[in-house]
Design a protein around this nucleic acid. Structure first.
Lengths: 117, 117
DNA sequence: CAATCGTATACCCATAACGGAATGCGTCAA
DNA sequence: TTGACGCATTCCGTTATGGGTATACGATTG
């Protein structure tokens, strides 16, 4: 088996920096492929391919406008990532990092008061 | 070029579901590889390999305890992901999704009543 | 109608992931 | 010391990525 497809979910889709850039650019407003190509400094086919991935995980919506295709951000699928991170958020915000040192100490002290061994 | 290495950053490392599971398990407390193997139902080598990736992006710390290796969560590297998502968080919390429908309608109606074009 | 623009797709290549299986290596027990 | 345990590493095969380049396709223009 290989790595999970980039189109599996937002986690995989967003692991690619260029695709994050694209989403960042679309946060301001919808844009045609053309414009993304210039802003990213990538070749047009690569941009189209990244957009395809983003489309497949529903992170962007497309709208036909003449011969242009306007891409618009759809942030919804990012929410699961945020939800998953929520449980970790407190771990670095609080003083839980102090527990780091405590655990380290315990690890070194080990069987200080235990008669089990 | 291939996909960026899983050890490039936390984004890539946590794109893999199993690795997210491992982190979830380590959130409760530090655990030996052994225990993760049982809880995940994976073969031991695969778990060790996932742990290697997590180590390389510094999402876990290891501590030697006899012939066991205790793995402990280090949530810090997750923060950049959270930071990146912060800009999007408001987009799904607010009523911005209403704008979705409006824009969709505009896209379909297009030049229905507009002589702009 | 032909020519051109804006995009998407097809193809090629180099790279590496992930799982499986075998093995290496340090630690502890008898 | 020999053997068992806990874990890491190596090799294998399959799969798909992401960039490059060429091309196909619909829409607009002349």
């Amino acid at each position: 088996m290989a790595r999970a497809a980039t189109t599996t979910d937002a986690f995989n889709a967003v692991a690619e920096p260029r695709r994050r850039q694209i989403l960042d650019l679309l946060r301001a407003r919808e844009r045609p492929v053309n414009e993304l190509v210039e802003l990213l400094g990538l070749a047009q086919p690569q941009v189209s391919k990244h957009l395809r991935v983003l489309r497949e995980v529903d992170l962007v919506h497309v709208r036909d406008e003449g011969r242009q295709r306007m891409y618009r951000l759809n942030p919804g699928p990012l929410q699961p990532i945020h939800d998953w991170l929520r449980a970790y958020e407190q771990l670095w915000n609080e003083r839980f990092d102090l527990m780091d040192d405590v655990l380290d100490d315990l690890g070194k002290a080990e069987t200080d008061d235990g008669d089990d061994d």
